[in-house]
Design a protein around this nucleic acid. Structure first.
Lengths: 134, 134
DNA sequence: CTGGCTGCAAATCTTTTGCATCCTG
DNA sequence: CAGGATGCAAAAGATTTGCAGCCAG
């Protein structure tokens, strides 16, 4: 099940490009977003490399895998703990840097963390409410 | 993009079996869980029927699609709004019926709702901490 | 040099879709 | 009896994996 035993992170040109794309990126991109963006500089870039790099970054804790989008995973290079605000129409995801003191006492669980998802409609989608199917 | 125009829900033996399986179910089953369980009574049951029924239930608002599990969608027949507590090891999901008054004022978004995910390690997994890879 | 990384393709897994047939309302 | 539902198979997406060759440390 686990494949990588070492925690070494070998730097390559491809990885540098991926890191550069992710640095300060607030768009919560999907693997495909990353692939497309980095492919411009590396036309031979493969998905395997993207996924490989992403899982290495996850393992190092420098990347968060978001399960907010039902259709695909999104990635968040944000380091500090924060929450998210999601537009249910266009799937845009914004960071919420507010700290909420949430407790959950009556539980045998060993609580490690929490994550709040706020759902709503973003300003841009509020206008064109017409196409609100799905 | 939208396929079903009517909101009619036609009852069939298969759907009755699915509804019976979901009623009061606190396991947050995946489509495959449902398929397997209901297949016992309907050996010819197909995934198409499961997904069809699930999306019809979603459309009616009597079912929630959880995006908590990175690997697949989970479904929650719970009606009242609640939050979730997830074991990061075995993926077990428990309901959290506590009400947290969360506000998010400074936003142009039209907030519709929120959902809190608590992460932790469940009692059963706390013992066998050995296999804590991934 | 060595073991991790890359690229490509094939494989997996989940979910969706097309279609002929069936059956609920 | 019309239109939604079923079952089967194929398709579509996203992610993973196998493998030979490459290259960073």
């Amino acid at each position: 099940m686990e494949k990588h035993s070492k925690n070494t992170f070998r730097m390559t040109p491809q990885r540098m490009a991926i890191l550069k794309y992710l640095e300060g990126n607030k768009k919560h991109p999907s693997a495909e977003d990353i692939y497309k963006a980095v492919s411009k500089k590396f036309p031979t870039m493969s998905f395997a490399t993207v996924y490989n790099t992403l899982s290495a970054l996850k393992r190092r804790g420098s990347l968060l895998e978001l399960t907010i989008d039902p259709n695909k995973k999104r990635f968040d290079p944000g380091t500090s703990p924060h929450h998210h605000l999601i537009c249910i129409n266009c799937k845009r995801i914004l960071d919420v840097q507010i700290n909420y003191p949430l407790t959950l006492s009556d539980s045998d669980f060993e609580i490690i963390g929490n994550h709040i998802e706020f759902y709503g409609i973003c300003p841009k989608c509020k206008g064109k409410q017409s196409e609100r199917l799905k």
